[in-house]
Design a protein around this nucleic acid. Structure first.
Lengths: 370, 370
DNA sequence: ATGAAAGCGCTAACAG
DNA sequence: CTGTTAGCGCTTTCAT
């Protein structure tokens, strides 16, 4: 392993000082053009590269975005299409400006030995940070990231900490409107199938559901609310049980599992007919798409739109073009006219990439199913 | 933004020297147990984290794997399933030991301003590196990475540099055996549909094809070899044209596009009947699966197996459990009994993680409505 | 078992 | 416009 070439070597070979070399590397003014050229030439010849760690030690460098997961992949599995989409999007926005993208998927704190998704911020591995996944209800890390002053964005709402920089759909409103819709259709025993137990995104749904009931003077029955993990093996059983609750005539499927087959199967087992003895309102990540055509309505969560907008703003915050924190909160959209059509098939990453690039004008994202 | 807490603060508060704190952090011997405990306590209280850059400046830290692409995503698009799979695998192997995974997807060299996928190695951003994608035929970067001495692995063969640490399928052998197989069936005008123009993986295929012809004393006809990009819009046209070459009775589909529909459509347009006037041998990434049931044989490229083996060895190399370089080269497997069955559908990332085996489900999308 | 001091490669003040 | 110098936070000799 050959000896590393440093800024001193470049300075010596160029016959200038290290400061001048530094200026050249960082494209800063105050260097004669001829000097600049000569230094670049030496750099090219030598194959010199500035040491990333040394740079980060002095000033803050702006070429590394961290991506960290509030829950671990095992706790709240990311939808694979979303992961691909995110990957393509990050690549488009950040890689194209030469930034490294660092994933911290199973962060383990040195100090606490627990799950500390802020690790990369404390260690100053990255100078900008994207927090993916729902935040735990009792989260404290995000506040410390906020306090650190680095550009960051949480993809998920943080009701507990409103100053937080986030891009998210308003799940509270989603549940509120979903429940109201079914109440207006005359239902009073409405089941709620939800997800993200222990996370704010889960709690928000229940708050919305409860508020809608309260408005109608209907008492809350905890038996009608059930959490379910998308990867759970006992999922069908759980849904069946929920549908079997006495007197239930409607269901809000807010777990966003987008699994029509399972709903049908559970309905059958629980003695219901979808759209008849049991009216469903199904949440979906895709626009204008019927996850379950028998459903009386669909609630579209524009998660991708929020994420895109947030990610672009994060990039601008990094660039200094804009100040933080970021607040992108979109309302979910209720469509009560059942539509036909299947979920969009994810396209190849390259297509996502070129599509995203070509898409500057039309914001329509038909190739990016969540 | 509050002032950063440094090792000095910890030393002062603990009433010890910085060296002692350093030893504690790095779990090195030479510290009294009671001292160790006290220092840990202060660290926990303070929320201290060692600065990543500062550490990398002195000794080499071993907690960051780089993933870099030899071609850019635009040049040679990664199969999305492979990307997901890789992500899950890296997460399983590296994240689980607390490592950061840094992607450099569009590396731009400071010095050359060209595509320099070794950037992260020169800048010492990561201390171990996975090079994904076929290497350009005229690649020089991999040799410099090799010379740098860091643990690395190229997922792809490097005929031009045999010492290179790599995990790959032998594409030369694949093409050789594929062509031999069709020659043995009496064909003499065999078309080759290939991919990765300008990359070693592409050149290897042609070498194998040529050698098989040579063995049979059949002259090479350049008109019978065509490169095609999986995302190309004119792909079908290209394939049709190839099939229309006069006298062609067989085709080796080694582009691994796994697109049966396109082959059928092109055959129709070119006036062929697959399996009759035109015998196909189709390359596939999946085992025991018929991409095209009409094909006379399939050639399975055990890319995933190689990658897994290589990645595990890379992890061991990082740990110091094993020395580099890594050499994992598997032979492709010819199966001439056409099988039924559709392409496997990728499962959710979380499942990939827990099972570490990904392909099980059938292609039928159970999520589609209607 | 611990402390003092040097220095990793770089950037930012401060001079010239 | 350019050079000198002093650290950034850490690890590592070399003393003690």
């Amino acid at each position: 392993m050959k000896q590393r070439c440093t800024i001193y070597d470049i300075a010596r070979k160029s016959g200038v000082s290290t400061k001048t070399v530094s200026k050249v590397i960082n494209n800063k003014p105050g260097v004669k053009e001829s000097t600049r050229q000569k230094v670049w030439e030496i750099i090219r010849e030598t194959g010199y590269y500035p040491h990333h760690g040394a740079r980060s030690l002095r000033g803050r460098v702006r070429n590394c975005v961290g991506v960290t997961l509030a829950p671990t992949l095992h706790q709240v599995p990311l939808n694979e299409d979303f992961l691909l989409w995110l990957f393509a999007k990050l690549s488009e926005v950040f890689s194209s400006r030469g930034a490294y993208i660092t994933f911290d998927l199973a962060p383990r704190s040195t100090a606490t030995l627990g799950n500390d998704y802020g690790r990369g911020v404390w260690e100053q591995v990255y100078d900008s940070c994207l927090v993916v996944g729902p935040l735990p209800s009792d989260d404290t890390v995000i506040k410390r990231i906020h306090a650190s002053g680095i550009p960051y964005l949480a993809l998920g709402q943080t009701a507990a900490f409103p100053e937080c920089s986030c891009a998210s759909v308003d799940f509270f409103l989603g549940a509120l409107e979903s429940t109201r819709f079914l109440l207006n259709r005359g239902h009073s025993r409405i089941a709620l199938l939800t997800a993200f137990e222990g996370y704010q995104a889960g709690a928000d749904r229940i708050r919305g559901y409860k508020q809608a009931l309260e408005e109608s003077g209907i008492p809350f029955d905890p038996e009608l609310v059930v959490y379910t993990d998308p990867t759970s093996k006992t999922r069908e059983e759980t849904v069946t049980k929920l549908m079997q609750q006495p007197g239930v005539t409607a269901l809000v499927e807010s777990s966003v599992a987008e699994d029509a087959g399972l709903l049908r199967s559970a309905a059958k087992k629980s003695g219901h007919v979808l759209g008849d003895s049991l009216e469903c309102l199904v949440w979906t990540y895709s626009k204008e798409v019927a996850v379950l055509p028998e459903a009386v309505a669909h609630m579209w969560l524009p998660v991708l739109d929020c994420s895109v907008e947030g990610i672009h703003q994060l990039a601008e915050w990094m660039d200094g073009t804009r100040e933080g924190p970021i607040h992108v909160v979109h309302d979910p959209v209720l469509s009560d006219a059942p539509r036909t059509g299947s979920l969009p098939k994810p396209t190849r990453v390259a297509e996502l990439l070129s599509h995203a690039v070509l898409r500057e004008e039309s914001k329509d994202s038909k190739n990016t199913g969540v």
